[in-house]
Design a binder for these strands. Structure first.
Lengths: 180, 180
DNA sequence: TGCGTTAATGCAACTTTTTTGCGTTAAGGA
DNA sequence: TCCTTAACGCAAAAAAGTTGCATTAACGCA
């Protein structure tokens, strides 16, 4: 499973994991999520399907694992000197990224796997950390928790449950509210 | 598919749909979501698996269909005379329902299927309608959209991405904010 | 009511995916 | 270097998913 303790992470295991992750990312672009299968990933990665089934359980958990890792290494936070502007920029980029087809798929996979594994909690922690570091620039007059509740949550709700887009205007309205 | 136009809804089709839905609900309680399979549902419902594959496509869409229907016929909204109290009661019950294991599974299924079908949008519409009817009691001094953004969204974010519970205290804090 | 049309289902053969047992490989430790 | 064993490859078996064709029964129409 994706959250298991890797008991023997040296050489081979790490090599296979990297190969599999790469295969998933490539195939997601080439054939799309709907057509993706475990045997297909295995063939591309040069391993037997049984390896994937044993390590990740099923396609959902494998995709969740890849997605969770993809969610981590965003680019470094830009610092314009104006923390409010930085927060605006971060929010708009976040909304944009999550609204994309790939972003929605990642959300879906992470949520699906999260019912048992709590992998989504890690993604949240990462987002909190990014927001907190921006808020710190403003002397913590605004806390990350408020941003999560009043900005991030409504954006994700839009993406997941609403046909209307989480566009710039929407983000701006949410930010105006939380920034007093 | 769940959102297809039912061209011939009379007699048999309706009977099969009811039988299948019932089978899903029963089996969800008996064996749980993880062990549920299409052939299992088919056997319980007394139909062939191919019927399910043809009508619903796969297990995810079938479960999303059942979940979406389950989300609709809640009990009638209680009217205590105090619309703010009604909103509080509705919110707490909603959070409670969605926080349960079954609730989280339903959210997961609806979201998963929603990437293509937009079935989640229907669920949102229903929630909006319920909230709006409560807000109407207060002369629309509060609009449903605000409640969605500032109360429902953070609750669902908690359930989906956070280990901490969406408990009474949390709901209360959100409501206090939106009620000025 | 009776009849024709055809959507929807049942059945069975077939393909693909998933599981499982067992032998082999290679990482980590003594 | 050797030993232990986690992780993998392979292949057989089980299960799930697909598809073509025959049958059933809903719906429209006279």
């Amino acid at each position: 499973m994706s959250d298991r303790v890797v008991c023997r992470p040296g050489g081979r295991s790490a090599r296979i994991q990297a190969s599999v992750h790469q295969a998933v990312e490539d195939l997601l672009r080439e054939v799309g999520r709907a057509e993706l299968t475990v045997p297909m990933v295995a063939a591309r990665a040069g391993v037997t399907p049984s390896t994937l089934y044993r390590r990740w359980g099923d396609l959902t958990h494998l995709l969740a694992d890849v997605s969770a890792q993809r969610l981590q290494p965003d680019q470094a936070l830009p610092d314009s000197g104006d923390w409010r502007a930085d927060l605006r920029a971060w929010t708009e980029q976040y909304a944009d990224e999550m609204s994309s087809k790939l972003g929605r798929q990642m959300l879906r996979d992470v949520i699906s796997a999260s019912v048992e594994t709590g992998i989504a909690n890690n993604c949240r922690a990462f987002v909190v950390q990014q927001i907190a570091s921006i808020c710190a620039r403003g002397g913590d007059t605004l806390d990350a928790e408020s941003v999560i509740e009043q900005v991030v949550s409504p954006i994700l709700y839009r993406i997941l449950f609403d046909d209307r887009p989480a566009d710039r205007a929407f983000c701006g309205r949410l930010l105006d509210r939380v920034l007093d």
